[in-house]
Design a protein around this nucleic acid. Structure first.
Length: 425
RNA sequence: GGAGGGGUGGCUGAGUGGACGAAAGCACUGGUCUUGAAAACCAGCGAGGUUUAGGCCUCCCAGGGUUCGAAUCCCUGCCCCUCCGCCA
């Protein structure tokens, strides 16, 4: 959520800034609601003031044994009027809050102008695009029976996966490798968290109220959702907390499955592991002092890159343009790995600085110094990395002419020393 | 699932209709004392909204209700604890 004070001061400036991401702010709706809110609040508070004075007077009179009847009858229909105003105020206030919750974050000045991912700005590349002396296959063809979609369809439906044997182990090894790198080398605390989160948590991070169609609802009895990313449970570690300034930054790493409806992506990426309803991800989350969040973003990008470099996978970094930016993000750097089977780079990490946007929704604050008022923290996260897509990258980049997949050196210890995988088809 | 007890400031915890945004303690901040520190003593110290300011308003888990007036009484929900049952 954006700062309501900023909103009151200069809504036109906010509208202008939001147009960079192609968002059309409805200034009239805002102004009408805000004016109604202000008028009702003023009236409500002056009625409350009146009531408090009389009630206090009645209390005083009663203690000193005076007659209170005249005072009580003088109150008249004050309570009734107050009730009417309060009901009206609650309605308007709720409506205004609801509206503000649907407004996205303001993009940082450095965010490229543009509408689609074609307008994203490439920042740099690492490694050379893999060359083959034969026609490379895509991961589905390479994996053969080890990727059992017949089973996953039977069990759950389309857009799920069953991995078998060595492929399942490679998948698990990737998770372990990434967690080890981020805990041992980058100083993150590892968390294990719930895979179901409530409405408040998803509202805090920004998935709700606007993107309810993208997440799996658990049931009408428990108003909760399957997490679309570890960002939700992990960022909510600090919801409604007042942190000590000395404890910042908080750095968390967490492996979870991610569940996404992928509504609106019908027909897109339907082959293989590229876009599923359930996939694994190792997520990095930082909670920082407001002065440090831009430094932290570079840090997270760097931490995510370390994994790709360790696996010796060619990748590039891109800065998302305004139109491609996520709802809550002020700036996002994506890492895209080279996939020979797709003949293009594909996203394996998305690193974002949310500034105080999530923190305000979550009321996540810190005390800058003793005796001072709490201030909002900044929150950031980045994938470190998406497991399924890295698995694809390893299969496709490390395939040989005999259909085998060589294991990157960094992963060999996690594979019991196995150097390559052979698949049956 | 059954029975009982709870939810109060950063933390512990008192408060059962008016003098309570709230005792006391801890933590924290400032001061006195001390060569310095500790201890002791004194003082300060919840969050949010609104206002040029003084101020005003709200908040004692959440939502309703009773009342001139609710942390306190009533209803509903959520959460926690104890015991029993079940269970990886």
């Amino acid at each position: 959520m954006l700062d309501p004070r900023l909103f009151r001061q200069n809504p036109e400036a906010i509208a202008g800034a939001l147009s960079i991401r192609g968002y059309d702010l409805d200034l009239d709706t805002y102004r009408d609601l805000e004016k109604a809110r202000r008028d009702l609040q003023t009236e409500m508070e002056s009625l409350q003031h009146e009531r408090n004075i009389v009630s206090r007077e009645i209390g005083r009179a009663k203690r000193s044994g005076e007659e209170i009847e005249p005072l009580v009858s003088a109150v008249g229909d004050l309570g009734l009027r107050l009730e009417v105003i309060r009901t009206e105020f609650n309605k308007v206030h709720e409506e205004l809050q609801g509206y503000l919750l649907t407004i996205p974050n303001i993009p940082d000045d450095s965010v490229p102008v543009g509408e689609t991912d074609e307008d994203n700005r490439e920042l740099y590349r690492w490694g050379d695009v893999t060359e083959f002396s034969f026609e490379p296959k895509d991961h589905v063809d390479i994996a053969g029976d080890s990727l059992d979609f017949e089973a996953s369809v039977r069990i759950a439906g389309s857009r799920f996966s069953v991995l078998r044997g060595p492929l399942a182990r490679l998948h698990r090894g990737l998770i372990q490798l990434m967690l080890d790198i981020h805990t041992d080398e980058h100083g993150y605390e590892e968390l294990y968290v719930p895979y179901i989160a409530n409405r408040e948590s998803l509202t805090a991070t920004g998935q709700l109220p606007k993107f309810e169609d993208d997440v799996f609802f658990v049931s009408s009895e428990v108003d909760s959702f399957l997490i679309p990313t570890a960002e939700v449970p992990v960022t909510n570690m600090v919801r409604d907390q007042i942190l000590d300034a000395n404890d910042l930054p908080l750095k968390y790493v967490c492996h979870t499955p991610c569940f996404r409806r992928e509504s609106g992506s019908h027909g897109k990426d339907t082959r293989g592991l590229i876009r599923l309803h359930q996939f694994e991800k190792v997520e990095l989350v930082q909670v920082t002092h407001p002065d440090r969040s831009w430094v932290a973003l570079d840090e997270i990008v760097n931490h995510a890159e370390t994994v790709l470099k360790r696996l010796e996978l060619p990748f590039r970094a891109v800065s998302l343009c305004g139109g491609d930016l996520g709802f809550a993000s002020a700036k996002t750097i994506d890492l895209e790995v080279w996939l020979p089977g797709f003949d293009r780079y594909r996203e394996v990490s998305s690193c974002s600085n949310f500034l105080d946007f999530q923190a305000r929704r979550a009321q996540a604050r810190f005390r800058p110094a003793p005796q001072t008022r709490p201030e909002l923290v900044h929150t950031l996260n980045g994938s470190g990395l998406a497991i399924g897509r890295v698995l694809i990258a390893i299969m496709e980049n490390y395939q040989d002419s005999q259909g085998r997949v060589h294991i990157p050196d960094a992963l060999i210890p996690y594979m019991h020393g196995v150097q390559y995988l052979e698949f049956e088809s």
